[in-house]
Write a protein that binds this DNA or RNA. Structure first.
Lengths: 187, 187
DNA sequence: GTCTATACCTGGATAGAC
DNA sequence: GTCTATCCAGGTATAGAC
């Protein structure tokens, strides 16, 4: 088994989400983990392989979380989704999509493809939550559920980005707007 | 006078907004302009100087545009603001803020500072437009104008980013949501 | 699975001629 | 203002020993 592999993946994700894919090197990883450059290459022969695996790990984690949503109300699902971003905000990290999308044209094509898959998967799942919540009367809004899902994901994604640049309470403010916009009463 | 300087600035901005700051080099610029690496360095001694000047140029352009807003209704101001992003979307570019914010921690501090200034300037100006439009009865919404401005900028910014990753009509969908959300009747 | 050593390349940057 | 030439640092990646 290889704990090192997991450590590389996690550290790589952190580096992408704090500095960007093109701003970190194998050296950043090897030094922090106390190993050598070549050891990182043993686990991930190329930076492309590493980047692709990091996106895949993120997809896998979301699928695990999403499976748990079946036990939750639609309202709880949405709040749990927002909570993913809340935890990122607390660390001053962007989300993986926000970190990679701006430079997607400079990324290897395997990473581009996986990123597209991730975006569609998450968007579809959140849309489903909104549709069910509407049906069950947990949410109230007039727009198309998919359009609403796009707006929610978009605003959460960039609230993390703007938080890195601006001072103030932009994240909290955006979350409030979202909750209002689905007409969800919180306690 | 130096037309080359302007060409470098414009091309640099394009490269940042299509690939990201850490994914382009002096070579990308010199080759495209048919000059040599050293000529680029003559105009911008360091990449930091170039990046900072690009942000400044963007601020200057916004100030020019914003001055013209004094002749327009609040509704027209908002639509003109959205149109800035529409033009970016047509070229499949992100906005400068979206392009730089994700990797802000990897940028030279002069760029970081200027980026913060730009964000605050634009956000303040859009907030002002929303306040005036509310007062004059051109818009109708309940949230705080600043929170609404944050939501509009956030969703526009990331609709450009997500457009690069996803297929579909996310940009158009987001624009519709924004227009609905200020209760603005378009023709 | 990790090491040493190294190859190879690209990138930012500068000196000095024109 | 642009060129040639060059320096140096850093980055990805590989070969082969342990």
């Amino acid at each position: 088994m290889s704990n090192t592999r997991t450590q590389i993946l996690d550290l790589g994700e952190e580096l992408i989400r704090t500095r960007g894919f093109n701003a970190f090197s194998y050296k950043d990883i090897s030094e922090k983990l106390g190993i050598k450059n070549a050891a990182v290459h043993y686990h991930f022969p190329s930076k492309e392989a590493l980047g692709t695996a990091i996106i895949q790990q993120s997809i896998d984690l979301f699928i695990v979380k999403e499976k748990q949503w079946n036990q939750l109300s639609s309202k709880e699902q949405l709040l749990d989704f927002i909570n993913i971003y809340q935890k990122s905000h607390d660390k001053n990290w962007s989300c993986l999509m926000g970190a990679l999308s701006s430079s997607v044209d400079s990324l290897p094509s395997t990473m581009q493809n996986k990123l597209t898959k991730m975006a569609e998967y998450i968007l579809n799942r959140l849309t489903q939550t909104l549709i069910e919540g509407l049906k069950k009367g947990e949410f109230h809004f007039d727009e198309e559920p998919r359009a609403k899902a796009e707006l929610i994901i978009s605003s959460l994604l960039s609230s993390l980005l703007l938080s890195k640049v601006m001072h103030g309470q932009i994240f909290e403010s955006i979350v409030q707007s979202i909750i209002l916009s689905v007409n969800l009463k919180t306690k």
